[in-house]
């Protein structure tokens, strides 16, 4: 198992409830496919530095999780095919990174579920 972090931007025009459902959907996808979600957080709705798909702002969320590498292509394709996800970024996160974030909890980061 390796430690990864996926950050994604949800289209905020779909409404608050749908955004929550969207985040949950990705969490579940990881959980149901042999991954283990360590932490979920969000940066809230942010204005983009440049337009993405004609949108000027979006809802940023990130999930830190443990998974085996073969999970990633399927996770990627599900993110890519999801119309509500404007953009996503999956990176290998060092374990230290996550612990540090837990310690110095920034105000806009939500607690672990």
């Amino acid at each position: 198992m390796r430690f990864y972090e996926v950050t994604f931007i949800v289209d905020d025009q779909i409404g608050e409830e749908s955004i929550k459902a969207e985040v949950k959907k990705i969490e579940d996808f990881i959980g149901n496919n042999g991954g283990k979600v360590e932490k979920t957080g969000s940066l809230g709705t942010r204005r983009f530095a440049y337009p993405i798909k004609k949108r000027e702002h979006g809802y940023y969320s990130f999930i830190q999780f443990w998974a085996d590498p073969p999970l990633l292509p399927s996770l990627e394709s599900s993110l890519r095919l999801d119309e509500a996800i404007l953009r996503y970024l999956i990176v290998a996160a060092p374990k230290k990174h996550s612990e540090e974030q837990n310690r110095e909890e920034s105000p806009e980061t939500s607690e672990e579920r």
Binding site: I9, A49, Y50, I52, G58, Y60, R87, L89
Partner: peptide, 13 residues
């Protein structure tokens, strides 16, 4: 560069 990809930072301003 990662922040730019996520539109948190501009590529050019």
């Amino acid at each position: 560069k990662r922040a730019r990809f996520l539109a948190l930072l501009p590529y050019r301003a």
